[in-house]
Structure formats: C-alpha cells, structure tokens
Write a protein that binds this DNA or RNA. Structure first.
Ligand SMILES: [Zn+2]
Ligand SMILES: [Zn+2]
Ligand SMILES: [Zn+2]
Ligand SMILES: [Zn+2]
Lengths: 144, 144
DNA sequence: TATGTAATTGAAAAAGATTATCAATTACAT
DNA sequence: ATGTAATTGATAATCTTTTTCAATTACATA
C-alpha cells in the first residue's frame, strides 16, 4: 500500500505532533521520492527551497517518521545509513547503485527458508534483511 | 571452507605485509571467534592481554583483512558496523541478537529470485545482502 | 481573532566513530 | 648484526549524529 502525504500528516496529527512548515516540507520530499535518502542528501535538497531548514530538524523528523513506521532502512547501494518511504508490511528492496532508485518487492519463500534455518540451527528467528543492488535501465545506459 | 590462522598469515606474507605482534594477536582473535565483531569490542578484548595495542591498529588490521577478502560485513544483530571471519564464497548469515554468534548458511534459491527480479524490473543485478537475526538456544534460555 | 502554552526549531556544543599525520619503533631481508 | 622500509601509537583532524537551550511557532481555547 502506497503511503501518501495526507496519511503521514494525519498520523502525526493523531499522535499530537505539530505540523510545522519544516515537517511538511520533509514529509513531502520523503513521500514523493522513490530513491534512497540520507539525512545529509535530504538536507541539501531541501535547503535550496527552504533555506531556513536545519540539518538537525531533518534528523529529528526522519527519526519521528521512523518511529511511526513510515520508513524502511537501507544498507546497500551506497553507505548504509539511508532510508526510503515504505509500509511495515514485509517486503524487500532492489536498489540502483547509480541513481539510488528503490524498487519494492515481495518474496514468498522467505518464511520457508526461515523455518528451515530455525530447525537446523535451533535459533528462534525474529527478523531478516534482504536487499539486492545493481543498475537500473537508465544508469546502465550511462555506464556504456 | 574454514579460514585458518595459518592461511591468513601466509596470505599476508605472500603480499609482503609484515607479521607484527599486534597483527598476529588480531588475526588470532578474529579467526578463532564465531561472533560478530566490532572494532571497539575487539580492541577492548585484545587490550586486556596486549595492553600496548592501539585502537587505530585494530581498525587498520581489520581494513587489511577486509581488503584481502577474509571478512564478511554484518549489518544486523546490533549496530551495522560489524564483521566476522569468512570466505568470499557466496553465503549468508544468521546472527544472534543476544550473544552475537554468527552462523553461515547457503541458499540455492537466490539466483532464481535474482533472475526473476532482473526480468521484472530491467535492472542488472550485481549483488545482494541476506541476513537473519534471532536468538540462539543459549540466549533464548536466558530470556526465560 | 487574540492569547497562552507546550512543542518545535536552529545554532552551537558535545559526543562518537573513523581516518590522517608523523616521529619512533620494529620486522625481516641481507 | 645492520639497514631500511613498513608499521605502530599518540595526537589531531574529520564526519556523523545527538544534546542543550533560548527563541520561535502551532494550535487549542477563549
Ligand atoms: Zn548497514
Ligand atoms: Zn538507477
Ligand atoms: Zn560470512
Ligand atoms: Zn546467542
């Protein structure tokens, strides 16, 4: 399910958070982007249109969105401190190492693999992380 | 294939690196550990037996082992700046969030999934990251 | 619409993690 | 044993992220 700006704003309101100009601009940028985002990159981008926005507020708002379950953390495709908008429904990510584009995908066989692993190792498995990286069609053209 | 202390030392020698007392102690610790290791944790552990070892040398030696292909990077089970000894053969990791124990496993179906993803998305896929986290038998006991 | 108040903000400082610098030390080929 | 280039640890520098705090602002209420 796609997350909309309106839904994020409504959730913030419901929890009693104020909708400041800074938060609105960050939410708009995060929701409308299909790319992997880092705090610094997001700050640089936003700072052009909203010169009065601070890096600290970007960190704080990303932390807030994360706590509310609106962010997926990404570890590959660059450094490993990036994120992208996403639902808490189980899914995985395919990330372009060139432009940062993120594609969500689902994988039915993880539950089975998890079951096998648990049986073989005696572990109680709580979570997993699966990411693919590569180059999207556009970026592959650029490489040639 | 399990990586031995002797093999790591031989590789260092072959590339012309000197086998200092510090490097030997770090190699011994890394090779003999089945756990996720961070530079700081490794430093604290080693510093007890070798008080003259510096944190910088731990960073440098881990970097060296990584360049030589002896380390696997780990992103889950704690912060995401840890590693463990491992071969470059494709494999994945199951990590205990309690004690940091790392179990290697293989998964035949990743190639197929990668092929499907590439076809559906037009991406040229280069790599992937798969980690499971949970609690090992010992740590599960401790939680009860 | 004006007001009160608690949440939010940005600047600056602090805290952590990692890397670069450099003189002293050390491994190891000879 | 000696010479030399690699390595080391202390220190400083760099980056990223968090904390602090006075000033500002959103928004409920009147
Ligand atoms: Zn990571
Ligand atoms: Zn791309
Ligand atoms: Zn491994
Ligand atoms: Zn454990």
């Amino acid at each position: 399910m796609k997350i909309t700006e309106a839904r994020v704003k409504a959730t913030l309101r419901r929890y009693g958070y104020k909708l400041t100009r800074q938060r609105r601009s960050i939410i708009k940028a995060v929701v409308s982007s299909e790319d992997r985002l880092t705090p610094a990159a997001l700050y640089n981008k936003l700072h052009q249109d909203y010169p009065d926005i601070g890096l600290v507020t970007v960190y704080r708002t990303l932390g807030l969105l994360d706590n509310l379950g609106f962010l997926c953390k990404l570890h590959t495709g660059g450094d490993c401190h990036a994120c992208t908008i996403g639902t808490p429904e189980p899914h995985h990510h395919l990330i372009c190492s060139g432009c940062g584009k993120v594609i969500d995908f689902f994988c039915r066989s993880m539950a089975e693999l998890e079951g096998n692993l648990a049986e073989e190792t005696g572990f109680t498995i709580k979570d997993h992380l699966l990411e693919f990286t590569g180059y999207c069609q556009n970026c592959r053209k650029d490489l040639m």
